[in-house]
């Protein structure tokens, strides 16, 4: 009976951690698909790498109990924690070095069916955000997407 309760607890904690991790992984993937340019996609990928991966591995560690398997899983979590920001920094640094310009200013996702547009706030003067947002909404200025200099 006592072991049963412990197993139940193990299952519940593991399920919660795995569900959270999978949610972050899927959300990061959707972000990689949805975000408008390379630098913003990088943020979504970083979200997958930090919280998503660590939560999934933590859920598996709870399942494995105290054994060699859980030690190895902890090692994987540690390696991912070390290597993923380094890899992200290397990719972004290489893109910046190659002259890929980041898209700056405000961006709003286009409604389905509508042509993609970038609402760029060029004037650095705007004081209140609500005002500028109202302005850009009332007068949508279609702009070409950021120039992408692929090498």
């Amino acid at each position: 009976m006592d072991g049963d309760v412990l197993h139940m607890l193990q299952f519940v904690i593991s399920a919660l951690l795995l569900a959270g991790g999978v949610f972050f992984v899927i959300a990061g993937t959707v972000g990689v698909l949805r975000f408008p340019d390379f630098y913003t996609r990088m943020h979504a990928a970083g979200m997958t790498d930090t919280l998503g991966a660590e939560l999934v591995l933590l859920g598996l560690i709870v399942q494995a109990g105290f054994s060699q398997t859980s030690l190895k899983l902890a090692l994987i979590a540690f390696l991912l924690f070390l290597t993923s920001p380094t890899a992200a920094h290397a990719v972004v640094g290489a893109a910046h070095n190659a002259g890929l310009k980041p898209m700056l200013g405000k961006y709003r996702a286009p409604a389905p069916g509508e042509a993609p547009e970038v609402k760029s706030e060029v004037k650095p003067k705007t004081k209140s955000k609500a005002k500028s947002k109202a302005k850009t909404k009332s007068k949508p200025k279609p702009k070409p997407r950021t120039k992408k200099k692929a090498t």
Partner: peptide, 10 residues
């Protein structure tokens, strides 16, 4: 990421 019109300002 999950809001339909994602308001981001890179």
């Amino acid at each position: 990421v999950l809001s339909p019109d994602m308001e981001i300002s890179p």
